[in-house]
Design a protein around this nucleic acid. Structure first.
Length: 287
DNA sequence: TGGTATGTTCCAAA
DNA sequence: TTTTGGAACATACC
């Protein structure tokens, strides 16, 4: 379920229940996803209190009272879910709908228990004393004031890459994923295969505004519910291109096309997102 | 059965 | 050097 809006929703909904809580237990059933190691993370977490819950790109960031940090990445299928403290039989737990793929869990001093459920085991849990080092490779935060059209333009123009894979590169812009990249490119009216150094200033400004707009809309709708992984969001009802292959473009009626770029499905309107850029009027050419 | 999946990393090749 | 493609990770769903 995890792109920036979904992660932000998780952060906002878990924050009030996590801040001030002391961690009294940590368990991991899939040590490969825990760094530096499950034992070390448990040793470092036990007894610590959570001072803040934030987000950096697609990472959930817990600040602990010893100035250390716990980072959680949901990757493709991770989710955090509150459970009551497990004190019944396994049957009782399953009757309560215990998630089927619990890979890790935290118990807190108020009796709460948070589980990390992750069918595909791609998720990551990282303990660190150096947040800056741990997030060194992440690019600009697209909703921060520092993300300006000028910044985006310079990020795009100092490379020559196709726009779609570039937007998915977390070291360039942190937080965009396959859904919101497609939606942003549509909203900006630019073709996903456009070379990043060939956009006009107007196109850069449009893409900048589109990125912020689709992410804000995603957050407003609590993210998108796409499959069995993430319930609760409503943004999927507002997609203009993602998952709409063959359906008529809501703006012009042209059938939405799907291509594969960088091994990812890419959806776009061939009419609203022309490869050669929008037609320029004679007046615009003269100016 | 095969294709697809909201993510990332690593390596090879162009 | 930069960019791209493929495989890998692991599981579920249609």
């Amino acid at each position: 379920m995890p792109e920036l809006p979904e992660v932000e929703t998780v952060v906002r909904t878990t924050r009030p229940r996590l801040i001030g809580r002391r961690i009294v237990a940590f368990e991991s059933n899939w040590p490969r996803q825990v760094s530096p190691s499950a034992a070390e993370v448990r040793r470092r977490l036990l007894g610590r209190s959570i001072c803040d819950v934030a987000r950096r790109g697609k990472w959930i960031v817990w600040r602990l009272d010893d100035a250390s940090w716990l980072l959680i990445h949901l990757r493709m299928s991770g989710r955090l879910e509150w459970r009551r403290r497990n004190r019944g039989s396994p049957d009782a737990a399953s009757a309560m709908g215990e998630p089927r793929h619990v890979r890790a869990s935290w118990a807190f001093d108020d009796g709460g228990r948070l589980v990390f459920d992750d069918a595909r085991k791609f998720g990551r849990i990282v303990q660190t004393d150096d947040l800056a080092a741990a997030t060194r490779d992440l690019g600009v935060e697209p909703l921060e004031p520092s993300f300006t059209p000028g910044v985006l333009g310079s990020l795009l123009r100092r490379r020559r890459r196709r726009l779609k894979p570039l937007l998915l590169d977390q070291s360039v812009v942190a937080g965009l994923g396959n859904i919101y990249a497609d939606e942003a490119l549509f909203a900006a009216g630019v073709h996903p295969m456009s070379p990043s150094d060939r956009l006009t200033d107007a196109q850069v400004r449009a893409l900048h505004a589109a990125i912020r707009s689709v992410l804000r809309r995603g957050i407003h709708h609590n993210g998108a519910t796409i499959d069995w992984v993430y319930p609760g969001g409503g943004m999927q009802n507002h997609f203009r291109v993602y998952g709409r292959t063959g359906a008529p473009c809501r703006r012009c009626g042209t059938a939405i096309r799907r291509v594969v770029l960088g091994q990812r499905s890419t959806h776009f309107c061939p009419s609203c997102q022309p490869r050669r850029g929008p037609r320029r009027t004679a007046a615009a050419r003269r100016s």
